[in-house]
Amino acid sequence: MATSEQMEAYSQFWSLTLGFAAPFALKAAVKLDIFNIVSKFSSEQGATLDEIIQELRIKHDADSIQAERLFRLLRFLVFKKVLALNGARYGLTPMSRLLVSHGSSSDVFVGGILSFCTSEVTQRSWQHVDAAIKRPGDSNAFVEAHGMEPQDYVAAHPEFWKVIEDFRLSISTATSATITRVYDGFKSVKRLVDVGGDTGSFLAQIVRLYPHIQAVNFDLPRVIANAPAYPGVENVPGDAMDFVPPGDGIFLKSFLHMFADADAAKIVKNCHSALESDGKIIICDMVMDEGKELHLQLDMMFLSGSQRYQRTKAGWKNLLESCGFGSVRFFEADPFSITEAIKN
């Protein structure tokens, strides 16, 4: 006979093993357009199951919508607090407002993050974490799964580039909305260089908030070649391993975690050389807290892809101080915090 401890462990095992249900339920709801449909109804009243079914029939040109299956999906989303249920009406919650892609329900849309994390390409990499652990050298789970590095895979499968672009845009939009609430250090910067700035979308948002800033979007030539023109943002091609354009503020968002300490130090030293006296480096990246489940989950996501290097507060402080920076300060926000340091 099983002990109570074994029975509890068995229940926990099932819950852990079926953890994939939540992201794929979200994906199904997004593909069905449920969150946009619910957003059309009064926020006080919400939409009934029959009203959602009617909208789905119109949206997908489908005569038959499986009401019982839809109900089960909605029931799960209510349990997860993605949707609210008031009587017989389904309404949005702060979580589901992040997945409304039109209208003014939210300034932030995170659908690109969901699409990337649940894509077949990404999911395939999870199957090879064990191989990446066993292999020597620079092999990683993505290479084990697909036979090539992510940048080479994208070149061979350009359709996946759109998934990555949407992923980056979602992160950029959500991150900018978060960090500008916890950090106001941009207001003292005159010339801000975004190292690894991708399309420049984040800088465009910063310039809208702080119009006095002269902004420089700095990334590899192949990235800058496809970067749109944003008002107040200059696109500059180059490699941060070689040089960084000058400024009194240098910003790195979700960038340094791609590099081991030696290469990260080379980039940070180039930032130090490019900064004016008393200039600041501003890093937006995860400050690893091993007591937070979200941080451990993100670390596993990185482990399932190409190699990433997560640093604790001590790790970031050591890296920056070894490269000539001081007065290191942390401004916490999950999952990506701000680390600021001043050039000595």
Rank of each mutant, 00 (worst) to 15 (best):
M95Y: 06
G147K: 14
F79K: 14
P158M: 05
H128W: 15
F167H: 15
S105K: 01
W126S: 09
L169M: 13
E159P: 00
S106E: 05
R97Y: 01
P136L: 10
F160K: 02
A145C: 13
M148H: 05
H102D: 14
S170Y: 04
C117Q: 03
G111C: 06
S119V: 12
T93H: 04
K80S: 08
D152C: 03
V121C: 02
H128M: 12
R97N: 10
S106N: 09
E159V: 10
N140Y: 05
L99K: 01
V100T: 08
Y153E: 02
S115I: 01
K80F: 06
N86L: 04
K162F: 07
S106W: 05
T118V: 13
P150D: 02
A84K: 14
L114K: 03
G112L: 11
F109S: 10
D152L: 09
I113G: 04
G87Y: 06
R75M: 06
I133H: 13
L98M: 12
D166I: 07
F167W: 13
V110P: 00
P158W: 07
S170N: 08
L77N: 01
V154C: 00
K81R: 12
D166G: 02
G112W: 08
Y90Q: 03
L74R: 00
I171F: 08
V100F: 01
T118W: 02
I164L: 15
E144I: 13
V129H: 04
F116K: 07
Q127A: 15
Q123I: 15
L85S: 06
S106L: 05
A132F: 11
I133T: 11
I171W: 04
T118I: 10
T122G: 02
R89H: 14
A131G: 03
G111H: 04
E144P: 04
I171E: 03
C117W: 06
S96I: 05
L99V: 02
A145V: 13
D130F: 14
P158A: 05
G112C: 10
D138M: 05
A84I: 08
G147P: 11
V129P: 00
D138V: 09
E165S: 10
V100L: 04
H102F: 06
V143P: 00
A145D: 05
M148L: 14
L98D: 00
R168E: 07
P158G: 02
S104N: 15
E149V: 13
R168H: 14
I164R: 00
V163P: 00
G137H: 08
A84M: 04
